[in-house]
Design a binder for these strands. Structure first.
Lengths: 215, 215, 215, 215
DNA sequence: TATGAATGAGAATTCATTCAT
DNA sequence: TATGAATGAATTCTCATTCAT
């Protein structure tokens, strides 16, 4: 085992690795400071790589941001696909989606920050990102099937738009976590204590299930 | 009285007005580009005032941002207070709050953008903004009373945390509008058509009322 | 005399002066190194002014180059207008134009270098320089009149295109001076000694006058 | 012999060819952008060869420029030698030299651009180019003989310095073509139409022959 | 002979901020 | 109160060149 690792030393001249290291460093930097506030110099430092190399691989700041964004979207889509919602009962599936969304955002605050930046910039980076377009469709389709299954069994109410539901599920977690800093100040209470977190999760499940369930 | 005004022409030596003009220009600039992306030069242009004056009134970029933020919070609080929710039946009050939140965010996109920036910066500007702290309390208190009144009358379920509810109401509108750009790209449909807007509002009312109402 | 100067001290905050100083420094730099080889830093040093100020007045390197070019053209046009060729006999006028051209180029090598740079860049800077277009017309017109006068008196041959003649007069001096460095190496003789210079001037007069004079 | 070549496919390990390809690519790049503006990266692209190889063959940008310049001089000298001026009558020889010069410059604009660059750099590259020095002598000598032959036959005037004449012949074509961009803008007419070209050639022949011919 | 990866020094340009009037 | 002029410190990006294979 350990000798396996020694057989593959951390190569210096490894394009794949360098690209990945830069992407990770850039993700952190963009998440912390936004697109405008991010500094290429700091990304170079973070990645312990030469600043020039960033331009070598990504041409400029915007294209770097785009690459980071694409990677972030791919990552969440992969996680979503591992959920296997189709194998669950409708209400369990919905609950699992709410929980997954919450946990994913909680563990990947950089993703939220990235999306905020991208929205500030009117989505211009994803717009010309070829694979972005079809990224969400599978989940929405699946959600549609779940809603239909639940409705057929009489468990769920009818007429629910899966996009609206998906947006609402995301919204409830996203807003709480993304705006946690200002909300905590304004309400004068720490919204990130373990207790607060579990209360939020319960609340969201109640809201969403209260909505989809027939009564 | 009226001749006082005619003696001081509109564009000169009117401190109050200059301050206000700068604040408005800064609001637009910060909303469009974020704190990091905003340019003092452009704020000067937007306000057709001298750049130096901005420093005269607001000392530096951060304090300017803070002033803009405070003004934005004040404005929404004022609007909230005009709602007169206490005079309505509980369910009508809740519905009205949902509608108000949606409409306010819709009409004041700069406010959302500002909050995103402030959250990116960990709320450091409101933190030392003396009046920010108590800003939300009245509404939360009122919401608590409404929930209690509804519960007492048997219309509402019990055990609802007004803060959670308030956050969720805000979340549903905020996320949809703030992230509209990326969502529209990803779902491949324009979320801001009049039809899409009214569908969203209906959906949100159903979600929130579905949650608070006993059955 | 000397107290005149003390009455107008070198003001620091003098926009006109700063602009002029930058233009002069830029002229020298561009002449020495071409557009691509010129360094904004060195222009700042040359002018003992802040680099930032260059951008303040001229926006970017290209616009600075354009401004320098325009100034250079204006200067030679002014000098040409002082020639008063119309008051001379045709052959004297032609000779004077040849001599003037030679001397002007000799004393303003930066002008030649600037034109070379501009031609390397396909004249893109003068192209959108509003006043450049009509700059040469007056002289060409005057030259046409001189040629006609000479022809009418039987002194000059007919059918001479003033533009062709003007270009040829310029060419004979320009090429010699602009390409002096390579020519001197290739011919193995210094083309800039006083003797060489006066020989060149004689030669050019003979060529041009030999061409325009009837016999 | 022939099978040796077939064993080495066209694109690999052919040092001679690679050198030549690089030289050609560099010629184009230097001609388009000058020495300062030329980019090693682009030369690599143009030659579809690796950037590293350029350094392998030519050490650095300056030496590459020097090699390009030498090749360009060699090429024009070769062409000049094919003219066989000695076999012509003096006036025909002069006319042919004017025409050749014009056509050569017309067909090799890169050569002109290269010389401009070299002059901007004070001829420092040819200076230490061993073969450059004697390059022009044969033609000048030949021109001297032609002039003498013409003078002896009474056709040409006497006292013409062949260097001056050669420079003037070059000047008339060079300036027109090299400065065509700015001249076209300033005179507001396209100097490169077929008609304009042939007019220029006629004019130059008249000027030069008008000068050398006795009357 | 050939090439992709990597880099330090430098270049243009930007930006918040201050000076002088 | 108002403003044009001036600046130092960054910041993005470029470029010739070298390293490792």
């Amino acid at each position: 085992m350990s000798n396996l690792k020694s057989k593959t030393p951390v190569k210096t001249r490894d394009a794949e690795r360098s690209r990945a290291v830069i992407l990770q460093a850039a993700l952190e930097e963009f998440a912390l400071f936004g697109l405008g506030g991010a500094r290429i110099d700091r990304i170079a430092e973070r990645s312990s790589l030469n600043k020039r190399l960033i331009y070598y691989y990504f041409s400029d700041k915007d294209q770097l941001f785009q690459a980071v964004l694409e990677a972030a979207y791919e990552k969440i889509r992969e996680s979503e696909q591992k959920l296997n919602l189709q194998s669950l009962l409708p209400s369990a599936a919905i609950r699992k989606l709410v929980e997954f969304t919450w946990n994913y955002y909680l563990e990947n605050p950089a993703f939220l920050s990235l999306l905020n930046s991208e929205n500030l910039h009117k989505a211009r980076h994803i717009e010309d990102s070829p694979n972005a377009l079809t990224l969400n469709s599978p989940l929405i389709e699946l959600l549609g099937e779940i809603l239909e299954k639940g409705r057929a069994s009489g468990e769920f109410r009818g007429g629910i738009d899966p996009v609206q539901l998906y947006v609402s599920i995301a919204a409830l977690s996203y807003f709480y976590l993304s705006n946690n800093a200002t909300l905590s100040v304004i309400f004068g209470r720490d919204l990130m204590t373990p207790k607060a977190q579990s209360e939020r999760l319960s609340h969201m499940c109640e809201v969403i299930l209260g909505y989809v369930l027939r009564n």
